[in-house]
Design a protein around this nucleic acid. Structure first.
Length: 246
DNA sequence: CGCCTTTGACCGGCGC
DNA sequence: GCGCCGGTCAAAGGCG
């Protein structure tokens, strides 16, 4: 096996303070881009206050020998704990060298507005066309009004930084672009994508790092409620190689 | 024809 | 209240 890149997050741990759903219903997964491999790992701040930026460096791995910075071919499996993640959370991974530079996750946190029952609506309780459409899209104008004064649970986010020529890495899911924005202080636009699967609200956004345009920051938000779409015949190999569970 | 991207408009949040 | 900013909408156009 040449390029095995598998990342697993303990879903339970990630969901600890998630208010809405039972752990059972929360297993979701991402396919990791097939051309993505790892050579450096999530930041593990020794103290509290995780840095909000994606700046990598004071990373450390728990079973790492000293001089394998860029060419560590065979770190097999390591457990990490991080203050970014909830207590008891863990990441296990198998890695091959190269392009993943940093990785961050965030737990779901509460927004000052929103509604708990949103997911239920998503499951097609409403028959009105507009409602359905809006539900698929996530937040409609109507819904925004409704949301005022309620609480919303923000979907957990997960982001990583890669060095890549292509902006959108193939992760096995189908995405539809719904927006592009020039963000301040960067010369490269940020693109917004939504999973095309019905009732799946996972979003991702892709941007290039201002300081180093060779780097692509991909941020996923939410959990897929379905398997990756396999358009190619080697789907089996793909899922074996690149599933990312959380 | 269906699905996708593009793109300007629009909206809410936030800081001043 | 105002203006900025990030995120989303949705019409229009492109493509297979």
């Amino acid at each position: 096996m040449g390029s095995k890149s598998q990342v697993m997050l303990n879903p339970q741990a990630l969901l600890e303070d998630h208010q809405e759903v039972t752990p059972n219903s929360q297993m979701g997964f991402f396919n990791f881009p097939s051309n993505l491999t790892f050579f450096q790992l999530p930041s593990i701040p020794q103290t509290h206050s995780p840095s909000p930026s994606f700046d990598p460096p004071n990373f450390s791995t728990s079973n790492n020998n000293t001089n394998n910075n860029n060419n560590s071919n065979n770190l097999s499996e390591t457990l990490l704990s991080s203050s970014i993640l909830p207590l008891k959370s863990s990441i296990s991974y198998e890695l091959a060298p190269q392009h993943l530079l940093s990785l961050q996750t965030s737990t779901p946190n509460l927004w000052p507005w929103g509604e708990i029952g949103e997911r239920l609506l998503m499951n097609g309780k409403r028959s009105n066309n507009n409602e359905n459409y809006n539900n698929q899209l996530g937040v409609s104008k109507m819904k925004m009004k409704k949301m005022k004064g309620r609480r919303k649970v923000r979907e957990p986010r997960f982001s990583f930084k890669t060095m890549s020529d292509v902006d959108v890495l193939d992760d096995g899911y189908k995405w539809r672009k719904y927006g592009q924005k020039v963000v301040k202080n960067t010369q490269h636009p940020r693109s917004y994508y939504r999973c095309t699967q019905d009732h799946c609200r996972v979003k991702k956004r892709v941007e290039r790092l201002a300081e180093d345009p060779r780097m692509v920051i991909t941020t996923y938000e939410g959990r897929h409620v379905h398997s990756p779409s396999h358009d190619s015949e080697d789907s089996e190999a793909q899922t074996h190689l690149n599933n990312f569970f959380w």
